[in-house]
Design a protein around this nucleic acid. Sequence first.
DNA 1: GGCAAACCATACGCATAAGTATGGTCTCTG
DNA 2: CAGAGACCATACTTATGCGTATGGTTTGCC
Lengths: 211, 211
Amino acid sequence: METGALLIPATLLQTRPMNEAESKQEPRGRLSATDWELAALDVLAANGVAAVAVESLARTLGVTKGSFYWHFPTREALLKAAIDRWEQRDEDQVISRVERIAEPRERLRELFHRVSREVQSHLVYAALLQASDNALVQPVIERISKRRLALLTEAYAEAGFEPLAAKHRARLAYTAYSGFLQLNQRHGMPRMDQEEYAAYVDHVIATLVPA
Amino acid sequence: METGALLIPATLLQTRPMNEAESKQEPRGRLSATDWELAALDVLAANGVAAVAVESLARTLGVTKGSFYWHFPTREALLKAAIDRWEQRDEDQVISRVERIAEPRERLRELFHRVSREVQSHLVYAALLQASDNALVQPVIERISKRRLALLTEAYAEAGFEPLAAKHRARLAYTAYSGFLQLNQRHGMPRMDQEEYAAYVDHVIATLVPA
DNA sequence: GGCAAACCATACGCATAAGTATGGTCTCTG
DNA sequence: CAGAGACCATACTTATGCGTATGGTTTGCC
């Protein structure tokens, strides 16, 4: 049903062909709405919601505002389009991918590992969390939280937890996840290296997933 | 151990005498720098860092900008003063208070309970976390994170954890804490009622603190 | 090759919020 | 009770960033 590497957003891995001098001005002919959305996701992941500004984006795309307002009526529209794209492309695929695993404990372990594998792929989510007071992103992260929480809760329930205990453990796991994102991306806490990080993930799994 | 009153910042509980019509304009004579700092902490807790604006603050204090710029050279100065006040008043007291408990497991449990007792008292910290990209608050939350993480790590180590395991468990506990703040204050996730919340805290303690 | 439509540049308007300049009023103290 | 310093109001200036108006250039297509 799905193809392999779709888990990781193209924008985050720079899969998009880096044809001309990508650093700044890259005058690759005309632009489409999609180009703007991808660029928006890039700066969203790198610098947060507030950094998604039309004049700034236009500069990095080698054009001016005039271009932008042909493709989008407003900045909000771009933000919404970009977030929608991200949400459907990444979010839905993580869910559907993990949901297929029958054994609940294995499903949980896989979920934790997936989340940990490519931290980069969660920069957008971290940025959205950070800007959750924004009227546009608030419903998004609320929706995503509900969905992921439900996934976790069900897995724990299937793994033998009492309904309430499953709910609590799911909440614990999910808050640990988003707290980790918040404290590691772009600030705070001493950054971990690769093996320390792997060891940490193992510890989390050992602690939060029943043997 | 119900000394909890000191835990909760005065600003959050409105301990300050509510002499005249506090809702809006409250013309209580002249103002001091401290008044501005307390008011700043109020809106900081209620509406985040961005909401700490001088004209807005002036309105709620019943004065104009002219007053503000007599007490402070800049908005940043106010923010720094307010955060400093909060950090020293609240943060130091939680630490020093909990550090006195000799038994490590009891110390951990007390820490979790303290944190959970008055969610209100952590609105400021949640607001700071949210604005951690701000150049002023970034070092603050970094400093606080290090301190709290060290406290947790030491407690786990004393409780018999291997050094690395203690570090990991501490990180897990701390990220769960800040993730919880992030997802509950002012957005996201369905709000919990009182008893569900208490049950959740118990679950967290049972899961993260060794028996 | 010429005309629409798609795409873009330039030059504005406008709102917000910080910060400045200047002069007023209160209050304490000698 | 008078003057000095503390406190505040009013009226600016300035910077940023969204959005608009208008016209220019490119591209697909007959």
